[in-house]
Design a protein around this nucleic acid. Sequence first.
DNA 1: CGGCCTCTTGAACCTAATCAAGACCTGTGG
DNA 2: CCACAGGTCTTGATTAGGTTCAAGAGGCCG
Lengths: 239, 239
Amino acid sequence: MQPVRNDIHNSDLPILCQSCESRHQGICGALSPEQLTQLARQTRRVHHAAGEELLGDAMPITGYGNVLRGVIKLSKVLEDGRQQVVGLQFAPDLLGRLFAKESRVAAEAASDVDLCMVPKAAMENLVRENPALEHRIMLQTLRELDEARDWMVTLGRKTAAEKVASFLYLIASHIDPAQGEVTTFDLPLSRADIGDFLGLTIETVSRQVSKLKADGVIEIENYRHVSVPDIARLRVRCG
Amino acid sequence: MQPVRNDIHNSDLPILCQSCESRHQGICGALSPEQLTQLARQTRRVHHAAGEELLGDAMPITGYGNVLRGVIKLSKVLEDGRQQVVGLQFAPDLLGRLFAKESRVAAEAASDVDLCMVPKAAMENLVRENPALEHRIMLQTLRELDEARDWMVTLGRKTAAEKVASFLYLIASHIDPAQGEVTTFDLPLSRADIGDFLGLTIETVSRQVSKLKADGVIEIENYRHVSVPDIARLRVRCG
DNA sequence: CGGCCTCTTGAACCTAATCAAGACCTGTGG
DNA sequence: CCACAGGTCTTGATTAGGTTCAAGAGGCCG
């Protein structure tokens, strides 16, 4: 257990914010204690179970959500139903596109998630009077763009084996916002979702996972719980 | 020929800026005539021939480039040489990632290009004293993120035939910044580059282009010059 | 226990990659 | 002017990686 991080005016902060990761690496770090206190009056903490839809493609955006815990799956579908997962969001990412009238992706809780919801108008007013906040959001957007482009390489140029290894490595390095790479974790996505993320079928994902297991690169319990004894051996399989 | 668009204080503007597309749809629209005049003292217009490298992956960024004419290819490579084109930039996009020390992609002139180069420090100072400018850049970044995610669907879930149709449609709808969709154009990319953009081989690209031609969806002269008699017929082939 | 879901594994098939040859364009030099 | 070299692009034949189709195993909950 880590003690709650202490910094100036910690005791003046709203209780919910005191231990919140978003204040450190996320967007709330751009706010003064006064702004945080004012904002906290308008936010509410919500929980969604795995599988719940948070935001439909082309649906109006009513607010923004700071991811506190869990994983969110962003996806797009073609008319005939083919689906592609275009991104995952972990704590302390911000869900919802700034100033957009409607979403350009569908968002679904991949695992159980906790969000800190901010009403659309409150967030946008705060951004207007606080350029540093827009700057923080800009940095997150640039990071998302980098991640999307990295994933384009995975989708366009890697083999099925490399794709699955890349996915496992992505999860291992993002699932815990406080630590970096982690050697044991639960997969937040089903095989079907992993397939939709990697541009593969369920069967191919399953076969490649079995192969990594047979080769001793990973261990698996109950389909979802993964251990990586030597993360470097996983990394070299990413291509 | 279109007349130069006229607006307030047009005559006060630097000559180079007067007919520049970037003032209308691009980032320079966020600047006052005074700021534009001041900025214009530090910019220089440069030309690059097709194939020239503008920026290497992990190379230090020395400035920003407003695309005035032509197409820029952004790409990433794996250690073993496999390449993926992760984006194209057209006028009036801004080349170069704001505040980053080094680039995360390689940039190459796909066709002959003209750029309006702004020194790194000049642009960053301007951004710091002008939040509206950062806002404009934010909007472009969000657009790039949308495009990257759209392309992830193409890479992950479309067939070779749909990929090639999607590429041709992308070019038809972006090559001319002033108009929207265009029915005749020169391909700014070689078959090899198209393959690297679509996650296909040269041969597969060539076969699918030939098929579209045989089906009467497109006409081709000299490998590079394309006509699309009915753009709706192309669009339905995008999947 | 039985139904339902997710996941795994096997066999057949198919799309796109690979290997290979030749066509077409361009520029150079005799 | 033609011959030839060096690109890029096209087309054909073969191969292979991943999909599809099919069956069964394992976990969860009534």
